[in-house]
Amino acid sequence: MDVSPEFAAKIATLARLRLDADKLERFAGQMGDILKYMETLAAVDTTGVEPLYGPVAHVSPTRPDEVVRTCTRDEVLHNAPETDGRFFIVPKIV
């Protein structure tokens, strides 16, 4: 399919990416080529074929729901761009 820069912008916004006009223009063309290539799959007869979303053969095991301390608050906050020592800080929401 052909992809317009406006359409690429809409999808980028869904993905929380604010891209500039030049990049959207370039992405739109590349997306069009890539999606056109992906559409070759339409030629494969998949009637009645169950989708395979992952190659794992085993059933995911369950475990007792026990509380375990895996890390400290300081460790979790260590990599955050902004904290008050107790919480992650983001721009004011309300």
Partner: peptide, 20 residues
């Protein structure tokens, strides 16, 4: 939107957009 626009490189952004 701005952190992701400036933090990710173009190939990563391209794949995120197509994946979305």
């Amino acid at each position: 939107e701005l952190s992701r626009a400036k933090g990710f490189g173009p190939e990563v952004q391209r794949r995120i957009v197509i994946g979305t």
